[in-house]
């Protein structure tokens, strides 16, 4: 199912997440942060994972990198990563989270860009120091060469006067520049996949435009795959090739970006698109809303997690059985009983 995007002449996905379950075992009970998520990342393409708070989009990313903190654990599923073109894929979910193999992949072959760049840097070292360290951790190069590469990277992400900026401390940079440095650090080891977790949420809209442009430009140049995680449908529309819509730990719909925005299949996707404030709206018009709010992860509804808020709720079906992610068109998958009958 996860290989749905393959057709004759297309290369296999570089990353395939299959029925991933990451649970958090807290004192108050088990939180199923990710509950059976499946998706694939094509080489050189951008996957957008979109959803509201508690949908499990960030935990999915953390699971891929195996940086899920206690009391969280991957309890089931596969994360197949194609390290080399001709090799067997590695199942990241099976690796030792502290082991050498995942350490080489994390930050090297799969890099991460966080929402808040300030907290992801150590305040005590210059930005140059931290990038040089990352480069030397993953690659066998001398200090001088690593420094030159760092300056090159900083220039590439559009930092003015990188020879001087390299010796500045994180607090001396503005939010936009810090995010650029963060991206430079992520790119330092030529990753195959870049995971960007809400990369522009903390930024102003004009700075956001700069960073999104930068990400797109870098991707064109390096042909890496990008997983962009956001709650902002606008960012998804601007950036993604494929879209994964998540709700309460599950993928409710996935497909190419144009289909998701123009022929959404799942009632949640449809309602979400209708309810987001748009810059094209007539002034002072009311928006269609989704009733209620997102349930607390401790009381996730039975059956389809969206059924209490769903306009198409079918009693006896949606609240009793869990829908599966199934093909609903040539290119889209959706998890909804409007499109398939419950398996009994």
């Amino acid at each position: 199912m996860a290989n749905r995007l393959m057709n004759g002449n297309e290369p296999p996905p570089i990353l395939t997440v299959d029925k991933l379950k990451t649970y958090f075992f807290t004192d108050e009970g088990t939180v199923k942060a990710v509950d059976g998520a499946s998706f694939a990342v094509r080489p050189g393409k951008t996957v957008g994972i979109v959803g509201e708070s508690g949908c499990g989009k960030s935990v999915s990313a953390m699971s891929i990198l195996r940086i899920v903190d206690d009391p969280g654990r991957i309890v089931a599923g596969e994360i197949l990563f194609q390290r080399a073109d001709d090799a067997e894929p590695v199942d990241l979910a099976k690796l030792d989270a502290e082991g050498n193999e995942i350490r080489a992949i994390r930050g090297g072959e799969i890099a991460l860009v966080f929402q808040e760049p300030m907290t992801s840097f150590s305040p005590h070292y210059t930005i140059g120091n931290q990038i040089v360290e990352t480069i030397q951790l993953h690659q066998d190069v001398g200090k001088a060469e690593a420094r030159n590469r760092t300056i090159e990277l900083l220039r590439m992400v559009g930092i003015p006067r990188p020879e001087r900026r390299i010796d500045e401390y994180p607090f001396e940079l503005s939010g936009g520049l810090r995010q650029r440095v963060m991206i430079a650090m992520a790119l330092s080891c030529n990753p195959k996949i870049l995971i960007a977790d809400e990369p522009t949420t903390a930024l102003d809209v004009t700075t956001q435009a700069q960073i999104l442009d930068l990400l797109r430009e870098i991707q064109e140049r390096t042909q890496m795959s990008v997983i962009i995680i956001t709650h902002d449908m606008g960012v998804i529309a601007e950036m993604a090739d494929d879209v994964i819509v998540m709700y309460l730990g599950r993928v409710v719909e996935s497909g190419p970006v144009d289909e998701i925005f123009h022929q959404p299949k799942h009632p949640y996707t449809q309602a979400l698109l209708r309810s987001i404030p748009s810059i094209f709206a007539e002034p002072r018009t009311k928006l269609p809303t989704i009733a209620g709010s997102i349930p607390h992860p401790h009381n996730r509804p039975a059956g389809c997690p969206f059924h209490p808020r769903c306009a198409e709720f079918m009693p006896g079906k949606c609240d009793r059985h869990e829908p599966q992610l199934r093909p609903v068109s040539a290119s889209q998958l959706a998890s909804c009983f409007l499109y398939h009958e419950p398996d009994i």
Binding site: A209, G234, E238, H262
Partner: peptide, 15 residues
């Protein structure tokens, strides 16, 4: 600069 929620409008933006 506002990201438009429509992939068909990926236009030239003023950055």
């Amino acid at each position: 600069a506002v990201p438009k929620p429509d992939p068909r409008l990926r236009s030239e933006r003023i950055v």
